[in-house]
Amino acid sequence: MDSNRTALPFREFSHRISLVFMLTLAAALLLLGRAETYVFDRARQVVTDLAAPLLEVASRPVAATRRVIERTDEYAYVFDENERLRAENARLLAWKEEALKLQAKVARYEALLNVQVDPAINYVSGRVVSDSGGPFVDTVLVNVGSDKGAESGQAVIDTDGLIGRIVSTGPKASRVLLLTDLNSRVPVIIEPAHYNAVLAGDNTAWPRLEYLAAQSAVSPGDRVVTSGDGGLIPAGLPVGLVIQTSDGGLRVQTFSDRGRLDFVRVLQYEFPSQVKRQDPPQVLKGPPVTSAPPPGPVTLPGPGTAGTNTGSNAGGASPAPTAGAQ
């Protein structure tokens, strides 16, 4: 009897058994994976760390090609671009003067009110080495790992603004959850009226604004920045602009372009939870007042009443706040 004749049905049978087994295993894994156990997290990190160097090598020619295309584009429009930059430079010079004045004024008020200023934020620069790969996940890998001080929760920005936060780290690479991912939730403030909201990704290019007060007067074009609530992401990072969809809903057009991520910064921000006790100064020295005669120094109550409103101060500014963290 020909051995191939008997082998064929057996091979088909074993193929079917194997298929049923793999289907069951995959279904079980899908259910178990929801538990987010340590084993899966560890497996993710190991696979990510193994693949990161390969992806970094593979992403270099891509970045080089993109630069060549961009350069070609720039050469084609170099005259128009030059004109645009001249006009923008003139506008920005005026803004610079205004900004310097405001900076000096804010510095005086901070000194006057004894404000607890945020500590300087350290950062590590890196490159985006991978794409998300799938249609339901908006994450990227950056070549900054725990070896360079990256930790889960740290904010990641590019030249345009916030792009997301780190959700897992290995020694060599970290995974960044982008603002557009289904699982992304970032507390934000909508300027100029300072309405609080939560920026929620929903797998589209324009994240939603959630928990926005019903009576808030937010309009398209308003600027969205991080609020710093929760202490994970520093306050004031630019996020995007409010846009209105055709159904009247409010969403955010992020400043960062998901399709052009390249060099990024991982902000090693640490919430200043150990705040030193700051008693208000005994004597407030206000900013110089030119029109009215300078009032005499105001004597504040003793350190025992620190944190209470003082009622008035020399500069006519708002009452002294408590020694807040941010």
Partner: peptide
């Protein structure tokens, strides 16, 4: 390209993508 290979390809994709474990394997 037996079912085991298909499963392995899907699982590695899941691990690298950072999405739900087992989604693409299944």
């Amino acid at each position: 390209f037996p079912p085991l290979a298909v499963f392995a390809v899907g699982l590695i994709f899941d691990l690298l993508s950072g999405g739900a474990i087992g989604l693409w394997a299944f």
